[in-house]
Design a protein around this nucleic acid. Structure first.
Length: 601
RNA sequence: GGGGCUGUAGCUCAGCCGGAUAGAGCGACGGUUUCCUAAACCGUAGGUCGUGGGUUCGAGUCCCGCCAGCCCCGCCA
């Protein structure tokens, strides 16, 4: 359609086209999805910018373009007669039979019209037919600590992005870059050696909660006691040097934490490959020598660093990224650089990624900007490589401050999920009582768990991740509005129709739509592929959420105003087909958000 | 001091490379159920898009200044 419009513009105004071409700014029909349903399916705004150079009224220009379009039989097959509106917009409406045919095609397509790059798509990042190998780095809790609310957003957003990219056919490596290596281990091991040596020798000698307490004590001692600090630093050196006793202690701590993390991931249905900071230990030295070789390395006050371009500190001097501390130790910037290098490096010495995505809070934006710059200048990012920090805002309580428990502690992720499920269960039970329904315990558990976890995930994902996120159980579990329960209910309604005798699987004969509610649903259903493509590019899951919400709204309107089972043929089977495609679309979309659906609730 | 993000309706937020009268949900107010689950649907009210300039045929969107909030800023991650 774009090319047909362009051709029409060129035929209408050959001189302007030639002139624009010569100026390096070829004509653009500015084709876009219609901003409102009453404007049709698409709008072309390209006539407006021509008004001034041509010295004609924009509506007149639009008319000339439309006239040329009418001369194009291919265009006539696609669209109804274009309408000129407002100052000179050209509104385009697709022929209804085309829409119906497209719905029909999607009914038989497990991908619902979303192309897979593996199957001859455009390759996403220009990698050709096989998709772009992507690494999504997310979640990344710290060993010997519990997962807390601070890990919520990275985990949920990262998982959803990975799912979308996987669905598009890209090979995705989901990595959790766990904190398993830094100074904190020196602290913890030193402290444990003194107060609870059995933890370092026997697996699961204490539970993780105790370990967290020990960690706090260790941290406190580290901050107050200089001798302890020194011992801790030595302990890190030992560990990094491969001392067997330290290694064993470290191993035990990691195993224990790992199992604890896994229970959360299982609950949230999240798959991850663990590759902690320690993995990059063998590559740290090479980062420093590599930077030295490329002439970027500068020694400053005993530390070895790279000074950033375009970023200056308090005194106006360039800010450094430190890669080797005065004591010879490496820090997180070194590890991140080693990771970037390894991830873009082709196999077998690396992951061979073409796109690397970091899902961390926006507080790390400066850090990543610095590290990315160094990697780029060191030549570690190939020309085709995309390196992206996907930042997100803080989780705040309803008071607008950082989310804390009543006693002021960090909220554990486990407790947060428990509470969501618990509240969802209480709400369900109250409703069952009100409606005098009776359901068995398994049903109640299943619904409460699904709704509770869905609510937590959806509330997070439905917000533009850049802003801080105000966490509220009441809002996320609300049954109306842009919430998980509202979407899940739409799926349940369709399942209800199926139970009451709607044969969704029946091969629909020629589809026949008559009501505006049907057409609205058709048009909404056909937007899926564009939405997915957008999320793949912009890495904004909230776009998918808004789409699913709007689809649910349009469906509920249809459901409310148009009978399905009681309709006459051929409407009945056409409407059943719409129901089926709606359910499939919602399930697919929610699946990409990591949210399971229900048949009844 | 420097940098980043944010500022849109009473509240929580959308606003997709600038495009038509700025949207949604909640809350408020009013209505709808002999009919596929009313966990729904329909309607009303509510906004100088922080502020002042600039670019443009056209700015919530781009550029500059200012104000406010949050976050980050050399050997923690």
């Amino acid at each position: 359609m774009h090319s047909q419009l362009l051709a029409a513009m060129e035929r209408a105004f050959p001189e302007a086209a030639a002139q624009a071409e010569a100026a390096g700014k070829p004509l653009d029909p500015q084709l876009a999805a219609a901003s409102k349903p009453e404007f049709g399916d698409f709008q072309a705004n390209g006539a407006l910018p021509l008004a001034k150079p041509l010295g004609q009224a924009p509506r007149q220009i639009a008319e000339a373009i439309v006239e040329q379009l009418a001369a194009d039989p291919g265009f006539e097959e696609l669209c109804e007669a274009p309408q000129i509106a407002g100052p000179g917009f050209i509104n385009l409406t697709l022929r209804p039979e085309l829409l119906a045919a497209e719905v029909e095609a999607r009914l038989g397509d497990p991908r619902l019209g979303v192309p897979s790059v593996g199957a001859g798509g455009d390759g996403g990042g220009g990698a050709g037919g096989a998709g772009t190998p992507v690494i999504v780095d997310f979640s990344s809790p710290n060993i010997a600590k519990e997962m807390h609310v601070g890990h919520l957003r990275s985990t949920i957003i990262g998982d959803s992005l990975a799912r979308v990219l996987e669905f598009r056919g890209h090979p995705v490596l989901r990595l959790t870059h766990v904190g398993d290596w830094g100074t904190q281990f020196g602290m913890l091991i030193t402290h444990l050696k003194q107060v609870a040596p059995q933890v370092l020798e026997t697996a699961d000698a204490v539970d993780l909660g105790d370990l967290v307490a020990f960690y706090r004590q260790a941290k406190q001692r580290f901050d107050e006691d200089e001798a302890f600090q020194t011992t801790s630093r030595q302990e890190v050196v030992k560990l990094q040097g491969g001392d067997p006793i330290s290694r064993k202690a470290w191993q035990l701590l990691c195993d224990q934490s790992r199992r604890e993390f896994q229970t959360i991931y299982d609950r949230l249905d999240i798959r991850l490959t663990e590759r902690g900071e320690s993995f990059y230990n063998p590559y740290l030295e090479a980062v420093v020598t590599g930077l030295d070789a490329s002439g970027l390395l500068v020694e400053d006050g005993g530390a070895r660093c790279v000074f950033l371009e375009g970023v200056s500190g308090k005194d106006g001097n360039p800010l450094p990224v430190i890669v080797q501390k005065t004591d010879g130790g490496f820090n997180y910037a070194t590890t991140d650089l080693a990771a970037i290098r390894y991830r873009f490096e082709t196999a077998p010495g690396g992951d061979g990624a073409r796109r690397v995505i970091y899902v961390t809070d926006s507080g790390q934006a400066n850090h990543f900007a610095g590290v990315f710059q160094v990697a780029r200048r060191a030549g570690w990012i190939p020309a085709y490589g995309r390196l992206e920090h996907v930042p997100f805002g803080l989780v705040q309580g309803e008071d607008g401050k950082k989310l804390k428990t009543r006693s002021g502690d960090t909220v554990r992720l486990k407790d947060l999920l428990d509470e969501a499920v618990e509240r969802s269960k209480a709400d369900l039970c109250r409703r069952l009582q009100e409606e005098e329904r009776s359901e068995d315990g398994a049903f109640i558990e299943q619904v409460a768990t699904t709704v509770g976890l869905a609510a937590v995930k959806y509330a997070d994902l439905s917000q533009n991740r850049n802003t801080n996120y105000q966490f509220s159980f009441d809002r996320m579990l609300a049954l109306q509005g842009n919430t998980a329960p509202y979407l899940l209910y739409a799926v349940v309604r369709i399942a209800g129709i199926a139970r009451k005798g709607g044969d969704m699987r029946a091969a629909a004969a020629a589809l026949h739509f008559s009501e505006p509610q049907e057409w609205a649903l058709v048009r909404e259903l056909l937007k899926l592929d564009a939405v997915i493509a957008e999320v793949e590019e912009e890495l904004l899951p909230n776009r998918l959420c808004s789409y699913l919400f709007e689809l649910s709204q349009v469906f509920n309107r249809f459901y409310d105003q148009v009978p399905v089972l009681k309709a006459e043929e051929p409407s009945r089977s056409s409407r059943l087909a719409l129901c089926r495609l709606t359910a499939d679309t919602l399930k697919l979309g929610l699946g990409l958000l990591g949210i399971a659906t229900l048949e009844r609730m």
